[in-house]
Amino acid sequence: MRYAFSFILAIVASPTVAQECPDGQRLFEHDAGADCIPADPQRIVSLHDSVLTVSLLELGVMPVGSHGRLTDDGVPFIRSAKTLTGVDFDNSDIEFVGAFPVDLEAIAALSPDLILTTQWQEAPLDQLRQIAPTVQIDYSARGDWETYATVADLVGETDRIAAMETRYAAAIDQIRERIDTENVTISTIHAHDSSLFAYNPYGNIGRVLYDAGFRQPQAILDVPLNDWSEFSAETLPQFDGDFIITTFNGSTADTPEDVRGYFETLVPGSCDLLHACRTGQMFIIPREEASATTYDALLATAYAIQSIVAGRTFEPMPD
């Protein structure tokens, strides 16, 4: 009887059932519960630059504050934002609220009406909720594009996604028309420190490879979906393909030559040992476009892959 009473009490007290939001707000279910949020938020603080802030900017929403990174000189920047949207801390009214973890006082000083965060950020949710309604988005569970759609929903811009998806679908159709994708293997692999890193999928490159129907090395497909794994340098040949498309991090002054150097440091003579590199079929493109979750970046990546592979007589990797 005591348990039955507790159960009824729990049902009655449950915020998801009982919670009703004031006028001008709506109940939003997210990855850390359900919160009443403004129906039309005006002062958003984003706590993840490349995952949330850049998406907001592409959707035409200017947050009042954002998480960012620091250059070697200590200057804050929004990763990928300047390249993809033309907006950064130095040319907008967006206030820098810290790196990792963010500065709660800086957030509170902006009097936000909505805080967007992710599972990656360490700022405690209960303290954030004391400042403003807070929505947490677990992008590793949702994947990049469901995360983007959630952000669009939060700011009432869902309609724009349909138009952008139509443009992207047209780009994928072009690739399929011009390339026999099912008979081309493209690999995406990264060398860093003493290991190889593989993502499944790797940002925009991965999405285009899947959507256009390219083959990928089994070692990449074996990585759990929406996850990444670190591999010993001894496994390098498993990540070879007709083509290798990898990235350099322009925000840290990396160059494509640096990336070739990372592979060479990892495995001496690696270029001669990888079919794609040996035959000049390894390409290194900017990470901003390849990994940022925006439709501009996705389209740029689709066109880059099309221009790399289409109309080329390439040397297939021997079985």
């Binding site: 620091l70 420190d193 340098a233």
Partner: peptide, 21 residues
């Protein structure tokens, strides 16, 4: 203070023989 630069020392600081030439 400088995550980008020290990222390169991350593995070395854990004590590693991997990748040493």
């Amino acid at each position: 203070l400088d995550e980008q630069t020290f990222e390169e020392l991350r593995v070395w600081l854990t004590g590693s023989l991997a990748g040493r030439r």
